[in-house]
Design a protein around this nucleic acid. Structure first.
Lengths: 341, 341
DNA sequence: GCTTCGACTGGAAGCGCTCCCGGCCCCCGC
DNA sequence: GCGGGGGCCGGGAGCGCTTCCAGTCGAAGC
């Protein structure tokens, strides 16, 4: 191991100038093939790998990107954002970048600022899921490019799931199965995705000629957990004109609703069909297996990071940044039909 | 925002030399109080934060630590290692360090080497959970200091849970409840922790005068999932002299065993008491709530990172590294008694 | 009163790399 | 045959910071 080889070692070994080695390592400029290969063999012989730190210092870029999410999103047992992160990490690796992970508390104060915002150790930030707007505010003012994943804020660049489209798929599916009286169960109402699922479902049902009655739309501000689903279920299941099918804003809620239905002696899907959203790992294993909308979490992360990388890299032109119109990318969703509805 | 302040801006603003600013920022050397405070106010007025990259380059240290785990450990739905990571990240923040996360595949080949090993972007690495020994081999040869969390390998520095102690607590508890015929259900047998739990339990039972019969010890090499627990359960539950209590190597197995018991019409804990290990989030919510051993995942990460930080920092003295005896730290565990046993 | 020390501060040499510039040489066109 | 334009490559100035070294100045020591 001793001390590792530096660029000048390689230059000496190959008998060329430092700058030539740099050109070769970065695949830039015009270098004669002979020289190029001489440098390359010298580099491999010495086991040379460019130092990230030095490269960053000189190039004014760090090659690091931040990935920020709310603390409780990260420690949730359903690894939704973990998967998003993995996708991002994968894409970063492909591009030769690093990802620094950081969490922000539910209620953000300037003291909670991830250090990398201060120390400028990242060229850009992916923000996953809903975070305190105060954080986004601070992030926006810092001038660091950022991309939201599965969240929306003031027209900032974002990539999210096609929630409306997925919900519409559900509506079509239910209508196709002969349901004309469908209900919706939602939670975490402030999350744009949740709102979009509701919107997509309600309007698709209406478009199909089976408008959802207001009384059949139950939405809460609470977190969208299984227990919440069970707790809210009564508002629909105990109705005299109980819906014959219920679309829940996510699988956890759906699972909770199934619990509640079962507790009431109702058969799923016999008495009430249930459809979720997300296709979490437990959905296929549940009894009955849950019909749901599959979302591609890794892809969400990949796309978000890719978008960010392009913005952050192009960011040498400080001025051009705000000129580019914020892009909103949508990741397609699929309906997975199982036994529950 | 424009372009951020550098150390020389601060020096100019405070009317001192660059080196003096550096001394102040690092709290080193002898600087007159007046100068110090002048520098500090200048720094805050300019919103100056030292650049990590430059600092690292100059000091020969990056201030980054790696956190490596197996890919499938990370995407598991139970966020065990996620919690460990959070603990590590927390401790790193306290110390002003960054954590780079990387995963290695189940079967490691040199191509899978996390980039930071090559690019020397980290000063040390925390390895969480069981990884391919080939990776540890490579890591060891790279000369980068590392600390294992929840794994053991060739006497390398490691911190792990007090598995034996926790298992002994379970044994004592069961004996105290009058159980004299206890069984053990394990999986992922190659994991040292799993072996330790078994060992601790068996020897504590023996010490209490109620040795566990060999036929009552069921261990598999499969992953320790809920389904595995259900699948293996028959080897104990269907025995003519079925144990009155079963200690499972982790909660997932225990939950699976409870499933299997219920499927057979057996009452838990009436017909068979069940105890798990880990205290996962679902343990308290299960029916019946699971008696289990609580482990402090965040603390595991904290301690591992702390240990590593000390090694990696002290590592200016390249030679001293191997002189220090590898420390093995143990994190205490607690018994949580709930309804299942 | 002059040396000696210490406390303090400034200068400057890098850390390993990128990238601009300038120069060499060779080939082409007229 | 001569000028000009590329293609290639070397030099060198930084990037922002740490750290060694030298130098200044005031006060204590003889």
């Amino acid at each position: 191991m001793s001390t590792r080889a530096t660029i000048s070692d390689v230059a000496a070994e190959a008998g060329v100038a430092i700058s030539t080695v740099s050109l070769v390592m970065n695949g830039k400029g015009a270098v004669a093939d002979a020289t190029r290969s001489r440098v390359q063999t010298a580099a491999t012989r010495l086991g040379y790998t460019p130092s990230r730190g030095a490269r960053g210092l000189a190039a004014g870029r760090t090659g690091n990107l931040g990935f920020v999410l709310r603390e409780d999103h990260f420690r949730r047992s359903e690894p939704f954002y973990t998967r998003v992160f993995l996708g991002a990490e994968f894409e970063a690796r492909r591009r030769g970048l690093y990802v620094l992970l950081a969490t922000v508390p539910d209620h953000y104060t300037p003291d909670d600022a991830p250090r990398f915002l201060q120390e400028h150790t990242v060229d850009g930030v992916v923000v996953a899921g809903r975070v305190d707007d105060a954080f986004l505010e601070a992030l926006g003012q810092s001038g660091i490019p950022f991309v939201l994943a599965d969240y929306a804020w003031q027209g900032a660049a974002a990539v999210h799931l096609d929630n409306e489209g997925g919900a519409a798929l559900v509506a079509d599916h239910l209508v196709g199965r002969g349901h004309t009286r469908a209900g919706f169960l939602g939670a975490d109402a402030r999350h744009p995705s949740m709102a979009a699922r509701r919107r997509g479902f309600v309007s698709a049902m209406a478009a199909a000629g089976h408008a959802v009655e207001d009384a059949h739309v139950v939405v809460s501000d609470e977190a969208a957990h299984r227990r919440t689903g069970a707790d809210l279920a009564g508002h629909l299941l105990d109705l005299p004109d109980r819906p014959t099918a219920i679309f829940c804003a996510n699988d956890a809620l759906a699972l909770g609703l199934v619990d509640a239905a079962r507790a009431r002696g109702l058969d799923v899907p016999g008495d009430v069909a249930v459809v979720g959203f997300d296709d979490v790992e437990g959905a296929a294993l549940a009894t009955p297996p849950l019909t749901t909308v599959r979302v591609y979490k890794e892809q969400l992360g990949e796309v978000a990071l890719g978008l960010l990388a392009e913005r952050a890299v192009a960011d040498g032109a400080e001025s051009a940044r705000f000129a580019r119109a914020p892009a909103v990318t949508r990741i397609a969703t699929d309906l997975v039909v199982r036994a529950s509805g």
